[in-house]
Write a protein that binds this DNA or RNA. Structure first.
Lengths: 115, 115
DNA sequence: CCAATACTTAGCCATATGGCTAACCAAACA
DNA sequence: TGTTTGGTTAGCCATATGGCTAAGTATTGG
């Protein structure tokens, strides 16, 4: 149940684009509005909006609208999903298939979300 | 320069599909032939081959042909690229933008390619 | 109230993706 | 020699992606 494949599909797909990775990078420094994120990009606003929607669909970004401004924020937890996937792969290489170890290994880099 | 965006595009795109992630998982246990990898999948051989090609294009898998058999192997280095990208993001969250630290942190998981 | 700002919706278009079948090598058996 | 076996090529097709423009809606500032 840990790996809903659909979610990973969306997450990896969302990250497979330089514009979107750049947005993730930007939001890493803190929340920002859509037009703020779009500034300086050689792209129309509607086109850029699609990228934001893709990031939202992947759950990497959450947005809220206040007045006429939509503010975007990064969801770090979703990015940790990538880390978890990678960690699982490493476990396979190393021949350790025991799932319990997953939670332990995870805490070495970010000791926050142990359910 | 560390982030050739094109490569990350291809790597993330390659991982954005359950079939291909499953191949990566399989190859994590060791090399395998194409038909071996295709076995049990609800998909024609040509269709499956395309996935292998996509993984090759991303550099995640390398293949060699001996006789009539094409053997595929995982390139773990390329997967570390994902880890490196993620690590960079984390550094941004934590406000540490100094690039030197990148090389140090990286060596915790794979102390190989320090240019 | 008017105008500028900040999205948003609704198309349109070219290309890419992911699947298929049919047909075609070439190596390995029997 | 003839037949599997393992892969490959060449199309075809439906849908998705990533870009655009034009024309909306809804706040906000003057």
């Amino acid at each position: 149940m840990a790996n809903q494949t659909g979610v990973l599909d969306d997450v990896f797909l969302a990250l497979a684009d330089p514009t979107r990775r750049s947005v993730v990078r930007h939001l890493g420094r803190g929340p920002a509005s859509v037009s703020e994120l779009a500034r300086g990009r050689a792209m129309s606003l509607p086109s850029f909006l699609k990228h934001v929607r893709t990031l939202e669909r992947a759950g990497l970004v959450s947005t809220t609208k206040t007045g006429r401004v939509r503010t975007c924020a990064l969801d770090r937890e979703r990015l940790e999903l990538v880390h978890d996937w990678l960690a699982e792969e490493r476990r396979v290489w190393e021949g350790r298939t025991d799932r319990l170890e997953q939670l332990v290994t995870r805490s070495t880099t970010s000791p926050k979300d142990l359910p």
